[in-house]
Design a binder for these strands. Structure first.
Lengths: 213, 213, 213, 213
DNA sequence: CATGAATGAGGTTTCATTCAT
DNA sequence: AATGAATGAAACCTCATTCAT
C-alpha cells in the first residue's frame, strides 16, 4: 500500500551536505544543481523534490548553522556563572562550535558569511522577504554580549566606564574577523591561540583594577 | 604618458564607478554588463574596450581599494612615532579611509569582502592565477601590526608577554568585524565610537603597567 | 463483465471528472498529472493504472463527449418526423445535450474544441494514428444534416434551389459558433434564445414558400 | 559610430512569421523557441531580443490578426450602403481577409482560435491582465452586426420581429463555425460557396417580405 | 492495487562575449 | 573608438513516466 519509505529529513540533509561540499569549494553561484545532484548521487529532479528552488538550499544552510551554533553556545552558558566566566564561556562556545561541526565548517562559514553579506537586505524594508538575514543574527549576538558586560559592571567586575553597547559588537566582530583570517591563513594562524590571546587582552582591557579610570 | 592614455584611464574609472554603484546594490553575480553600460551611459560593447572580461572590473576594484587604502594608511604613519602612536595612527588611518573614500564605500567594502572570500584561492596552489587575493592582503596587514607590537615591546611600552603574531590578526580582525557590523547595523552602531572603544580596551589590555604580569 | 471491470470503469470516470475540472479551468497543457491525482483524491501512480498516458485522458474525453452527444441527439430524432421537425429536433438535441451534461459542460466543450483543433491531423494522412479527430466528427454531422435537408427538398418542404452539401456545414457551424460566443459571453448572450432565433431565420430562409425562387 | 542597422519591426515580423509557420503545424505548446529560431534562420538568443517571452509571440499574433482583419473589413464598408449591402460587405470583408492574408491563414486562424479559447479569461476579473482576449473581440463584432441589423429594421429592409442582439452572434458564429469546418474539411467544403449559401439563407430569413410575420 | 519517490529529457530564459558597421 | 545586434553555452526548473515497496 505504501510506497518506498524514505526519511525525508535525512534526504534533505544528504542533499544539503553535498551542496555544502561544493559551495565551500566553488561558491554558490558557480555550483549547479546538476553538480549537487551528482555529488549526492541522485538525479537532478530529485533535488527539486526536497528543495523547491536552489535558493532554498542556501536558506537551509543558514537555518542549520544558526540553530546549531546557538545550541552549542547556549550549552556553555550557565546562569550561575559570573560575568567574566560567562564571557569566556560564550567565546569558548563559539570555538567549540568550530571544533564540533562536521567537516569543513570553516569553508562553509565563509560561504555563510559571503552570501549572508550579499543577500543581506540593504534597506530594512526588504528584511521581511529575506529568509536569512545577518542583521538580526548580529543584533541577537550583540545583545547577549552587551548583557553580560552590563552584568559585569553591576557586579563590579568590569569597569564602570565601559560602553557595553559599543564594545559588544567590537568583541563579536573581533571573533568574526579572527575567524576569517584563520580560514584564509590556516597555515599561519592558530585560531585557539588567537582567541585566547584576544580574550586575555580584552579581559585585561575591560577588567576593573587599581590605577584604572 | 600620452593624453590618450589619460583618457583611457578616465573611462575605466567611469565604468568602474558605475559597476560599483550596481555591485553594492545587487551584488556582482546579479549585475549584468548591460546594466553597467547603461549606468555609465555608454554602449555595452564599449565596456569591453576597457575591460576584457567582467571579472576584470572586480579585479580593478580590488586593486583600486587596496592601493588607496594603503596610501591613506601609510600617510598617517610617521617613523618617528612611538609604537602606541603608530598603532593608533594605523587604526585611525583605516577609519580615515572610510571617511575619505568617495561615496558608498561601506556597501562596496561588503562586496569587496564577500567576493574576496568567494574568490580566495582555497588551496595556496591556485594563488598565482588569482588576480585578487585576500590572503596576501591580510598577510601584509598582519605583518605591519605585528612589527608595531614588537617595536612597542622592545621599547617597554607593551607587555613582554604579548604574542605579537597572535594578537596582530585579532586586532585587524576586530576592525574588520566591527566594520561588517557597522555596515549591516548602521542605524544601531557608530563606527567611530566602536573603534575608539575598541582602541581603549586593546591599549589598556596590551600596555605595560604596574600590577601586570 | 466481471464486477472488477465495473470498478475499473468507475475509477476511470473519477479520474476523468477530476481532469475535466482542471482542464476546463487551466487548459490541458497547464494541468499536470499530479494535480489531476490530487483533485481525484488518489495517488499520482494510480492515474497510470487507468490511463497509460496523459493523452489518453483527453482521448477519453473525446470519446465520452462524442458518444453521449450522439446518443442524446439520436434520442430526439424519430424516423416518422418530417424534415423540418427533424431539423428542429436535431438542433434541439444539441441544446438538450448542454442542459443535461453534468456540470461545466460549456467550459469542457471549449477544451474539447480547442484541443480538437490543435490535435486535428492537418493532412489526412495522419488521421489514422489520431485517436480523436474533429474531422470525422464533422463529416458525420454534416452528412446527417444534409440528409435531412435533402429529405425536405424531396418532400417539397424546402426550396429546390437549396445546396444541401453547402448549407449543412453552415448550419452545424452556426451552432458551434453560437456556442463559442455563449461560453465566452455568458453574461450577454442567452444560448436558447440565440438558437431559437437562428432556427427561425434559417427555417424561414430555407422553407419553400410562394414568391421564392 | 552606429552599429549594424536593423529594422527592428521587420525582424519581429520575420520571427513572427517563422513562429506562425510552426504554430500552425504543431501547435503553440509543442513548438520550441529553438525551432522558431531555426525556422527564422537566427540564433535562439536573438528571438529573445525581439520578444521578451514566448507568450509575447502569441500576443503579437493576436494583435496582428485583429488589426489586419479589422482594417480589411472596415475597408469594405461604406456609410452610404444600405443595411443589406453592409451586411454582405461585412461578411465579404471577412472572406476577403482570408484571401488576402499571407500564407496559411487558415491554419493560423485555428491556432488563433484554439489558443484564444484556452487563454480567454474565464471570469471577467482576469480580463485586464490578459493581452489577448476573444471576449472583447466578439463583443465588438456583435455590436457592429447588431447595428447593421437595427439599421435594416429601421429602413424597413429587415423584419421588425428580428431580435438583433440575439441574431448578431448567430451570424458571426455561423461564419466562425463555417470557417472551422472549412479548415478541417478543405477537401470537401468550399468556403466561398458555403458563405454565399449562408448569406442567401440568412438574407431570405431576415428580409422583410409579404407573407411574413 | 496503490503509491509517491526518483528520474532525466526537454523547455525557457539569461547573459557574457563577439564582431560587423 | 563606439556601438548594439547576434549568439549559444549554460543554468534553472518542470513534469510525464517508471518502478520498488
Amino acid at each position: 500500500m505504501t510506497p518506498k519509505q524514505v526519511d525525508k529529513e535525512a534526504r534533505r540533509r544528504q542533499i544539503f551536505q553535498a551542496a555544502m561540499e561544493l559551495y565551500s569549494q566553488k561558491g554558490v553561484a558557480r555550483t549547479t544543481i546538476q553538480e549537487i545532484a551528482e555529488q549526492a548521487g541522485i538525479g537532478k529532479g530529485t533535488v527539486y523534490e526536497y528543495f523547491d528552488r536552489k535558493e532554498d538550499i542556501l536558506a537551509y544552510m543558514f537555518d542549520s548553522i544558526q540553530e546549531e551554533s546557538e545550541a552549542i553556545i547556549a550549552e556553555q552558558l550557565t546562569p550561575s556563572m559570573n560575568a567574566e566566566k560567562k564571557l569566556v564561556a560564550y567565546i569558548t562556545g563559539i570555538m567549540s562550535f568550530f571544533d564540533r561541526y562536521p567537516a569543513d565548517i570553516t569553508e562553509i562559514l565563509l560561504v555563510f558569511w559571503a552570501e549572508g553579506i550579499l543577500n543581506s537586505p540593504r534597506n530594512p524594508a526588504d528584511a521581511s522577504t529575506q529568509s536569512f538575514d545577518l542583521r538580526s543574527m548580529y543584533e541577537e549576538y550583540n545583545q547577549i554580549v552587551a548583557q553580560i558586560l552590563d552584568e559585569g559592571k553591576q557586579d563590579g567586575l568590569f569597569r564602570q566606564s565601559l560602553d557595553s553597547e559599543a564594545i559588544a559588537p567590537a568583541i563579536i566582530g573581533a571573533l568574526d574577523g579572527l575567524m576569517l583570517q584563520w580560514v584564509l591563513l590556516k597555515d599561519q594562524i592558530d585560531f585557539h591561540d588567537g582567541v585566547n590571546n584576544l580574550l586575555t587582552v580584552v579581559l585585561d582591557g575591560i577588567r576593573e583594577h587599581e590605577g584604572n579610570d
